[in-house]
């Protein structure tokens, strides 16, 4: 059974970051996939584009077919209240419990502030449990 709070994210390897960014977004919208969130992690000569769409499996299928190197990973999103330090509280909670954050980014199109977190896949269920028990608002979808 899927645990509420796990969200599938599609990561795409990109060599020429800017030009291809539009290629990907155009391809997704042509296939009626609406982009809930998009984030580009850059290294010196490549980038990893992370997108959250409503149907990750379908997005992977069409991106695979277009010749992209694609991977689906599970992440979770947390609503952050609109006061200074609330992001910090979540980060501290995780680190105090020995949960290493691989990366995090803001959810771009949310009215309320929200952050995406990626942790070790083996830890994600426990992490979600911990957050809920501590009263942190985990989003069921973005």
């Amino acid at each position: 059974m899927a645990i509420a709070g796990k969200i599938k994210q599609v990561s795409i390897f990109m060599e020429n970051k800017m030009g291809e960014l539009t290629d990907v977004t155009t391809l997704l919208s042509k296939n009626n996939l609406s982009i809930k969130s998009i984030n580009l992690a850059e290294a010196s000569d490549f980038g990893l584009l992370r997108v959250i769409v409503d149907d990750a499996a379908f997005a992977k299928e069409i991106l695979d077919a277009a010749g992209f190197s694609v991977k689906i990973t599970e992440i979770f999103a947390v609503a952050i209240e609109d006061h200074v330090g609330s992001f910090n509280e979540v980060v501290r909670l995780l680190s105090e419990n020995g949960i290493n954050i691989e990366y995090t980014y803001t959810l771009s199109n949310k009215e309320e502030g929200a952050f995406v977190f990626k942790v070790n896949p083996a830890m994600i269920s426990n992490t979600l449990q911990l957050l809920r028990n501590s009263g942190v608002k985990v989003l069921d979808r973005v």
Partner: peptide, 15 residues
């Protein structure tokens, strides 16, 4: 060429 399935979506791991 990277493999079809990127091994990691973590920049530092790919680096």
């Amino acid at each position: 060429e990277v493999s079809d399935e990127v091994m990691s979506d973590n920049v530092s791991e790919v680096e």
